[in-house]
């Protein structure tokens, strides 16, 4: 029962983290920036607008599917903090977590193709190309952490500072985070200046608000998971805040790579992760 309360608290915290991210970037640009609770104002405004006209059932079902999947992700992560007597504690639930991250992106691709907008379709082509690299590496890197420590479920993961035991996998996890959280230099998927924000180009109103909340939850879920794996349960939330600052610093100081260079880099990351996993066996 506690994990539902904790999941709700994490959802509210994720919206604050989005505000902190924007404020930090603005300060590095020598500007004042919006207040930290600005994402709340944006969501309230979006909920009060009319949605786009009826296109087809898949287009309108995608926001609801995405947000339900994101909520399941954050509940699974909360179960790690609650402990072994949680409802959601079962063996190899970290693999289910990896699949759920992939599922959210797959829903975005469905919505993009159903909207038949050229910008969204270009985004989904880039996302499919990158998925070969980063999603494969993501599952392998997750497995490396659990294989090296011999633990089988998230709730049992009570190792502190596991990055010492798996240094290569830790670095690869941070690099994969650039694509999952959409940070330059690897944010080709929704490149703002070329594709007018990619997947979400045709959504507006309540649909867009639900998709934005799903993105915020996914970002915090990744941060918490990386903090849990690298630093341990106690330091997971402070580590997530540290990742917000680190990703904001990288967003402000790097331009965007082109698609093929990004795809090549993530293919190399997948090969490195495979070698690391292979050497364990």
């Amino acid at each position: 029962m506690i994990e539902f309360v904790l999941a709700f608290a994490f959802i509210i915290i994720s919206i604050f983290f989005a505000g902190i991210f924007r404020k930090f970037i603005a300060r590095m640009h020598n500007r004042v920036g919006p207040p930290i609770i600005q994402p709340f104002y944006d969501l309230i405004k979006l909920f009060s607008k009319k949605t786009t006209k009826y296109k087809n059932p898949i287009f309108h079902a995608v926001p609801y599917a995405s947000i339900i999947t994101s909520i399941v992700i954050i509940i699974l992560i909360s179960s790690a903090f609650v402990g072994t007597d949680s409802l959601f504690d079962f063996d190899y639930n970290f693999l289910v977590l990896g699949y759920l991250f992939i599922l959210v992106d797959t829903f975005y691709i469905f919505g993009a193709v159903a909207s038949r907008s050229p910008f969204a379709i270009q985004s989904s082509m880039r996302e499919l190309l990158l998925m070969l690299g980063y999603e494969l590496s993501f599952m392998m890197v997750l497995s490396i952490f659990f294989a090296k420590t011999g633990i089988v479920s998230l709730a049992d993961f009570d190792v502190e500072f596991a990055f010492v035991q798996a240094p290569v996998a830790s670095i690869l996890l941070v690099l994969i985070g650039f694509v999952i959280v959409r940070i330059t230099p690897f944010d080709v998927v929704n490149a703002e200046t070329e594709l007018s924000a990619g997947f979400f180009a045709e959504y507006y109103g309540k649909d867009l608000a639900l998709l934005e909340i799903a993105e915020f939850i996914k970002d915090l879920a990744f941060g918490l998971m990386a903090g849990l794996l690298l630093f341990g349960k106690v330091f997971a939330l402070p580590a997530a805040l540290g990742f917000v600052f680190f990703y904001a610093l990288m967003q402000a100081t790097s331009p965007r790579y082109c698609t093929f260079r990004t795809a090549k880099i993530f293919l190399i990351i997948a090969i490195l992760a495979f070698i690391d996993l292979f050497l364990l066996v």
Binding site: I25, M28, H29, N30, R31, T184, P185, D187, A191, E192, T193, A252, T253, S254, P255, R256
Partner: peptide, 16 residues
């Protein structure tokens, strides 16, 4: 031009 490349920081600095 810097904004096109994704480097928003240089965009803000040139405007300053």
């Amino acid at each position: 031009m810097m904004h096109e490349l994704g480097l928003d920081t240089l965009f803000m600095y040139f405007m300053r």
